[in-house]
Design a binder for these strands. Structure first.
Lengths: 106, 106
DNA sequence: AATATTAATCGTATTTTTACGATGAATTTA
DNA sequence: TAAATTCATCGTAAAAATACGATTAATATT
């Protein structure tokens, strides 16, 4: 893609797209679902849950962390990843509002 | 990306990711926002609204159409694009439920 | 101190996405 | 019928995403 023309869109449009984009891969959805399921933080067992290489999962975790949805904390030799409630709320709000904008027309 | 290992994830995970992915570009958000704004169908003026080449916008429209969020209908020399209410509801439901799964833990 | 464990990062290959101009197909207008 | 309009598609180039193995860094264990 030749040059990201981010200046052409509003900050809101860019943020919505950014948040949606990070949800745009099954592995990252699976990671988040696992976090929901255990209802706490994952501390080092994600690789067993998802059939991908360790380095690949680490990349997906980084993508989620970069956008802010999760946060990691080093615990000795392991790393604990948790949902960032603040960003999760933001996402719920931003995307929820976006969805709510359309109420049917034609 | 070497080979899409879709068999490794559930249908739900794949669908959520697919729906989110198509929202993962500012241009497509802008297209949908324009549809909301005019509160009807766009019939041939999207190229003036978004500063991208006609062929590029056509590609984005196709992406939205492929996932089902919008539907196009040929009207003479123009094409009218509308939100598909059914798929929009599905998206609201699927993603809304996904967001609702997390209520805070740590 | 040496070894083991865990996760991040590096390097790299492949695929997908994004973007554009050019062309083509369909319809409308002159 | 000829010209104009509108949009899809083709071809292509550049960038980003995805995946993996190998390596590194940090901590824990022996």
């Amino acid at each position: 893609m030749p040059a990201a023309k981010t200046e052409l869109f509003t900050d809101e449009q860019i943020r919505i797209a950014e948040l949606a984009k990070v949800l745009g891969h099954p592995a990252r959805i699976a990671i988040l679902m696992h976090l929901f399921k255990i209802n706490s933080c994952v501390c080092g067992d994600i690789v067993e849950e998802i059939p991908l290489a360790q380095s690949t999962i680490s990349q997906h975790l980084k993508a989620l962390k970069d956008v802010g949805i999760i946060q990691g904390e080093v615990e000795g030799t392991k790393t604990c990843y948790c949902i960032n409630p603040k960003v999760w709320q933001e996402m719920k709000g931003v995307l929820g509002q976006f969805f709510g904008t359309f109420n049917g027309c034609c």
